[in-house]
Simulated scan of single mutants.
Amino acid sequence: MRLVKFSLIFILLTVLSFSQTWLTDFEKAVEVAKKERKLILVYIYSEHCPYCHQVEEFVFGDEEVEKVLKRDFIVVSLNISEDEAEKFDPIGTPTFVIYDPFKGKVLAKLFGSLDAETFLSMLIKVCNKSSLRRC
């Protein structure tokens, strides 16, 4: 029980430490993304996922990753146990989905822990191929 509480506090503090506000409601993210003409990054996690903790600390905590996310994406985090996460058919955690809110379709979906450089490269590549922005 203590581990669960610690994990939830860790995730909350990690998410709150980012300068960008992360959303937890996908429909709200779609609304904001359309308004700001940005793509959506859906981050699907679980409390008991050690790879999620690594990603949160070493990838989302990376200055360059944070800069690109803030500039070009609306980020929504969903617990894998939530109904909203099911629509992306995650095979596990962490799962990353890049979603185009105007076309209503998934542009990319990745599963597993990535290093910051690989993650950043993937974000930029998919963003550049989208019709919304150039990263």
Rank of each mutant, 00 (worst) to 15 (best):
Asp25Gln: 08
Phe111Gly: 11
Cys127Phe: 00
Val32His: 06
Arg2Asp: 14
Lys35Cys: 05
Lys70Arg: 15
Leu3Asn: 10
Lys70Cys: 06
Arg37Gln: 13
Tyr45Lys: 12
Pro101Ser: 02
Lys5Thr: 08
Ser19Val: 07
Ser77Arg: 14
Gln54Ser: 12
Ser77Gln: 10
Ala33Glu: 11
Glu56Asp: 13
Pro90Asn: 09
Leu123Asp: 14
Lys35Met: 07
Tyr51Gln: 10
Leu8Gly: 04
Val4Gln: 13
Arg134Gln: 10
Glu84Trp: 01
Ala29Glu: 08
Thr118His: 02
Phe26Trp: 05
Leu12His: 12
Val75Ser: 12
Leu16Lys: 12
Val15Thr: 13
Gly112Val: 11
Cys135Tyr: 06
Leu78Ile: 12
Phe102Leu: 07
Ser17Gly: 08
Ser81Lys: 14
Glu27His: 09
Ile124Gly: 02
Val76Ala: 06
Ser130Gln: 03
Cys127Arg: 09
Phe60Ser: 01
Leu132His: 03
Leu41Cys: 11
Trp22Cys: 03
Leu69Thr: 01
Leu23Ser: 10
Phe18Leu: 13
Ala33Cys: 06
Leu69Met: 11
Glu36Leu: 08
Ile91Met: 09
Val97Ile: 14
Phe10Gln: 14
Leu16Asn: 11
Leu110Ala: 12
Gly104Phe: 02
Phe60Lys: 02
His48Gln: 10
Val97Gly: 02
Leu120Asn: 13
Lys129Glu: 13
Val68Ser: 04
Glu47Tyr: 14
Leu120Asp: 04
Arg37Phe: 10
Glu84Asn: 06
Glu84Pro: 01
Leu107Asp: 03
Glu66Leu: 08
Phe26Ala: 09
Glu82Phe: 06
Glu66Ala: 15
Asp62Trp: 03
Thr118Ser: 15
Trp22Tyr: 09
Tyr45Gly: 03
Arg37Met: 07
Leu107Trp: 05
Ser7Ile: 01
Lys5Trp: 07
Ser17Arg: 14
Ile74His: 08
Ser46Ala: 15
Ser131Pro: 00
Leu78Asp: 05
Ser46Cys: 04
Asp25Leu: 07
Cys52Ile: 03
Ser77Glu: 04
Asp83Cys: 01
His53Asp: 03
Val15Asn: 04
Asp89Trp: 04
Val55Trp: 00
Phe60Ala: 00
Glu86Ile: 11
